Amino acid sequence: MADAQQSFWDSHRTLAQVVRESERFALQLPLVGRIGVPRPEQVAFIVGLGALVALDLIEWPVALVLGAGQVLISEQMTRTHPPAVGEQLA
């Protein structure tokens, strides 16, 4: 007998696929409102910059400029990125 509901692991894989394919995330917090969440690649970049600053390998103003440049480039790419195949068909 086939179970109509997905198992925990299947639903986790489905959600992980949705996250991988998504371009933007936001959290709705009470009293604060909607807050954007960066993609995992951006989080890794920011953490890497923070680690370089913490280890005194680069100065914090340099890290700030690099981080701001990364944010601007990623925003530009999401604006000019062509729509996904599913969006084109809709």
Rank of each mutant, 00 (worst) to 15 (best):
L15H: 06
Q42T: 11
D10F: 09
E23D: 12
P30D: 03
E23K: 00
E23S: 06
V18R: 04
A16S: 13
V37S: 13
G50F: 05
G48H: 11
P38S: 15
E21R: 11
H12I: 07
G50C: 12
R20E: 12
S11N: 09
D56N: 13
D56E: 15
Q42W: 13
R20Y: 11
V53D: 07
L15D: 00
G48M: 04
R24W: 03
A44N: 09
W9I: 13
A51P: 00
G33S: 06
V32D: 04
Q17E: 10
W9K: 08
E41K: 06
I35F: 14
G36P: 04
L15Q: 02
F25V: 02
A54V: 01
I58S: 01
I46H: 09
L55M: 15
Q42G: 15
D3C: 07
R34S: 14
E23R: 06
R13S: 04
P40R: 14
V19S: 00
I35A: 13
L52S: 05
A44C: 10
I46K: 06
S7V: 04
R39V: 07
F8K: 05
I35G: 07
G33Y: 12
A44G: 08
G50V: 02
A26G: 03
G50M: 04
Q42I: 13
I58V: 15
D10T: 08
A26M: 01
S11V: 01
L15Y: 02
D3W: 06
A44H: 08
G48L: 07
R20T: 05
S7P: 04
V32W: 03
L31H: 05
L57S: 06
D10A: 13
L29V: 11
D56L: 12
Q6R: 07
E41T: 06
L29C: 05
Q17G: 02
E21D: 14
V53F: 13
E21A: 12
R39H: 10
V18A: 14
G33V: 05
F25G: 00
Q5C: 13
G48K: 04
A54Y: 11
A51R: 01
Q42K: 07
A16W: 11
L57N: 06
D10R: 07
L57A: 07
Q28P: 00
P40M: 13
G48S: 14
A54C: 10
